[in-house]
Computed example of a mutant assay.
Amino acid sequence: MKVVLVGYMASGKSSVGKALAEEMGLEFIDLDHYIEEQQQMTISDIFREKGEIFFRKLEHEMLHRVLSENEDIVLSTGGGTPCYGTNMGTILNQADHSIYLQLPVSSLVERIAKEKEERPLVRELTDDELAEFVGKHLFERRQFYTRSTYVLDCHEKSIERLVEEIKQELL
């Protein structure tokens, strides 16, 4: 079974993905970490040294590779992965299930604010700018995320509860 988790940054894709994979006895792959391992560079360095266009082409190639080469996985994507090129189509065509981890802007802002230093995209923003940025960005990206086969409301739910809800949907 191939399960792909999509959603905005800090929506819990990696945390939920790891717990879900463990619970279901599947391999867990974080696409951003996979890309970093393959390139021997951080995502930030790839963006800085080679540019976003290079990264997005690489990301598409790695997404296709991971989904083609693995039968039983839970894959967490980067927040922008489904929104570029034909990536969402690739996810829908090659995965058995795609799940959008949906959170309100206020929850995302609260989570992102706690880890701004680790997120180059928002590191320099004030808290007021962050809320506006996330709201606008999420509005643009939601059309891609909602193409997923399942939209999961994650607001005020524990990882354990989310894993249970996903399992009920998958089985």
Score class of each variant (00 low, 15 high):
E61L: 15
S148I: 03
Y84S: 11
C154P: 02
E129H: 02
Q40K: 14
I159M: 08
H137W: 00
T42P: 02
L162V: 07
I112T: 05
L63R: 10
L162Y: 02
I46P: 08
R65L: 10
E59P: 11
M1W: 13
T146I: 11
E165K: 11
H97I: 01
E156N: 13
Y150N: 11
D153W: 02
L5V: 05
F47E: 06
E22F: 13
E59Y: 11
I166W: 04
E117S: 11
A113C: 01
L171R: 15
V122L: 07
T42M: 08
I35M: 02
V122G: 03
L162N: 04
E156Y: 08
Q102E: 01
L103H: 02
R48A: 07
E129Q: 08
S76N: 00
C83H: 09
V4S: 07
K136A: 07
T90L: 03
S44W: 10
R141V: 12
E117G: 08
D72C: 08
V6H: 06
H64V: 15
Q94K: 10
Y84K: 12
E169N: 14
R161Q: 12
V74W: 06
A131L: 02
Q143N: 01
E69T: 09
E165I: 09
F47S: 03
S107R: 04
E52T: 13
A21V: 11
I43D: 02
N93D: 15
E27C: 11
R48N: 07
E160K: 14
E69H: 00
L26I: 08
L121T: 05
L121E: 05
K167H: 14
S158A: 12
E36F: 06
A19C: 14
T81H: 09
L171C: 15
R48S: 07
